[in-house]
Every structure is written in C-alpha cells, then in structure tokens.
C-alpha cells in the first residue's frame, strides 16, 4: 500500500500544477493516469496546436506546456502511475483507500480529481459484431505485429496510426487501407510512400458496413457514400479512430454530478465528500470556465484544504514563493 498526502487522478496540466501547489506546501502527491504519459488533452488531442491564453506565456503548444509543467514540478520528485485507472475508492476513517486497474492500493486523506473529461480510450467500431471479435480479430492498437504475418488485414482510419501501420504491415501481410474521404489527416509523405510502394490497396470514400464470419472473421463489407458495397476478405481488422474520453468509474463514487462533471464549492473545490476534490475541466460550479488557467487556480485553493487534512496538527501559513525560505528550500533554490 502506498501512503501519501494526496492522490491526484489525472496527469493533465491541471493535475501537474496541483503537484506544484501541494509540493510548495510540503505535501507529497502520487499521480495516476490512464495514458502512458503526462499531458492529458494537451498531449493527446492537440500536442501541436498553439495555446494563447496561459497567463504570461503569449504562445505555446500543448506539448511545450506539458514539458514546462513537468520541469516546474521536478523538485518534488513525484511518482507517476501511468496506464492505470482508479477503479474503486472506499472510506477508511480520515483516509481514502484507492484501488487501480493494476490492483495498486493507495491510502491518502486527500484525492484530487483532475480527470478532464475522463480517461482516454480508443474509439470503437460501431458495427454489429465488432465487439464480439474484439481482441481476437478486431484490434484498436498493435502489440505484436507478428500475429499479422501473411494474413489479410483491413485497416480503418486516415491518421498517422492508420498510415504508419499500413506501411509497416504491408511488408509482412496483405493490407487494405479504408478511409471515408480522399484526404488523409496523416503525414503526406507516409501516404506518398504507400502509393509509391503500391502494395497496399487503398480504398477511399468507404466506411465499414458489416463484418461476416463465424468463430473468426471471414470478410468485411464496406460501403461508399453513394451506397456501393464491396466485400473484402479479411482475417484481421485494425481500427484507428483516435481516442475518446470516458468518465468511467468516477461516476460511481457517490459524488454529486451534473451530467459528466462533478459539483464542487468554490472555496476549496471539495466535492460533497470530505477530502475528495475536483479541479479543471471535470469540476463544475456557477460561472465555471473550462480553461487551463481556471484549473490552476482551482488546484491552488484545493491544496490549502489538502494541507489542513494531511497536517491536522500544523497551522497553515500562506507564503509567497518570492520570499519564503521554506518554499525555496522545497524547490531546491540555492539562496545567494
């Protein structure tokens, strides 16, 4: 069991800055995120898109912001638990006990939920039977490409994942690439390469209509906008339609919700459960704006209440980073 002052659920920009606000108060936090890296929506949805409304930073990309935040919290040597999702929480006196999808157990007086719009999961195919074949003949990511050797593969999508895997697997398998329009979102040079090598059958303006088969997939039917259907013999389907966000187990924790967001007070961003806070896009209150800068503010205020709960016998003193020797020591600043 990992004991800590605060468990932060979500390693997006708001979760990362909460680490900072807790850290300068001397509180230790552990961060859990379902993705394989920090950054949340900034990294998953718009790594290259410039952001123009971070105070004091005229322009930066989602990737740069994430990197800077990680640099900013380096002194706190925070543990990150990636590829994990908090499944259950239960109350144990003044503490909360959390269990993750990898069966890791945490105990902490505070949980800060900075979960954005939920955890990222692959967007699944909508046709009937796609679920039945999932992880057998239908995949949303590639873990072992050797499985596809000499097989007939139908790849769906128009982004880099679809193009890259079409190119890669065409070396060892028969690949058909299917996309709903002629323009591809993925890198033009990969598409050029695919066309040049000419091994991949590219079918544009088609979408998946149905899957045929018994125990295993035998073929798929694809349909064009004007209703033309084509059958393609297929052993495996690979689908790359990006990631969606799902709230997941959080909705079962007994928190007061408003649709997919968690209601909090604006004094310390605590939910209806003592010691559980929600900050960033996932929280709601009158006037809430889904801005990164609002999330930073919310984290700062929540960290004060976290301190009171984690250090009940100490008095909280508000201090500035510019003048507090204690904060500067925590940040590893060498005083001149």
């Amino acid at each position: 069991m990992i004991k800590t002052d605060v468990v932060i659920v979500g390693a997006g920009p708001v979760g990362l800055f909460a680490v900072h606000q807790l850290g300068i108060k001397g509180l230790k936090s552990e961060v859990i995120d379902n993705l394989d890296k920090a950054g949340g929506q900034c990294i998953e949805l718009y790594p290259d898109k410039p952001i123009y409304d971070i105070a004091g930073i005229p322009e930066c990309t989602g990737e740069e912001l994430t990197k800077n935040l990680l640099d900013q919290i380096k002194p706190f040597k925070t543990n990150f638990h990636f590829n994990e999702r908090v499944q259950e929480i239960k109350n144990d006196g003044n503490n909360w006990i959390l269990k993750t999808s990898k069966n890791k157990i945490f105990s902490s007086p505070n949980i800060i939920i900075a979960g954005g719009v939920g955890s990222f999961e692959p967007r699944k195919l909508s046709v009937k039977d796609a679920e039945k074949y999932e992880d057998k003949n239908v995949f949303y990511s590639v873990t072992d490409k050797n499985k596809f050797k000499g097989k007939k593969i139908s790849i769906f999508g128009g982004g880099d994942s679809a193009l890259d895997w079409a190119l890669e697997l065409s070396k060892i398998a028969n690949v058909t690439l299917i996309h709903r329009r002629e323009e591809f979102r993925g890198a033009p040079h990969t598409l050029g390469e695919l066309k040049k090598i000419g091994k991949v059958d590219i079918k544009t303006k088609y979408q998946l209509a149905s899957i045929e088969g018994g125990e295993k997939i035998k073929s798929i039917n694809i349909k064009s906008d004007d209703g033309k259907e084509t059958q393609i013999e297929t052993d495996y389907i690979l689908s790359f339609f990006g990631l969606i966000m799902k709230l997941g187990p959080i909705s079962e924790w007994g928190l007061n919700m408003d649709k997919k967001t968690i209601k909090v007070n604006t004094e310390n961003f605590e939910t209806n459960k003592k010691g559980i806070f929600a900050i960033g896009d996932i929280c709601t209150y009158p006037g809430k704006l889904k801005l990164i800068l609002s999330g930073f503010h919310e984290g700062a205020l929540a960290s004060v209440e976290c301190f009171k709960r984690a250090r009940p016998n100490e008095k909280y003193r508000f201090e500035f980073t510019t003048s507090s020797k204690e904060i500067q020591a925590r940040l590893g600043v060498k005083n001149k």
Binding site: Q41, L45, Y46, K49, V117, G118, I244, M245, K260, D281
Partner: peptide
C-alpha cells in the same frame, strides 16, 4: 450533443 472538449474542435462529440 456532448461537446466533451468544450468547442475546441478536438473531440467530435
């Protein structure tokens, strides 16, 4: 209409 990303053209919901 879910609008998960809040209008950032980043989610298609």
């Amino acid at each position: 209409i879910d609008a998960d990303c809040g209008g950032g053209m980043a989610c298609a919901t």
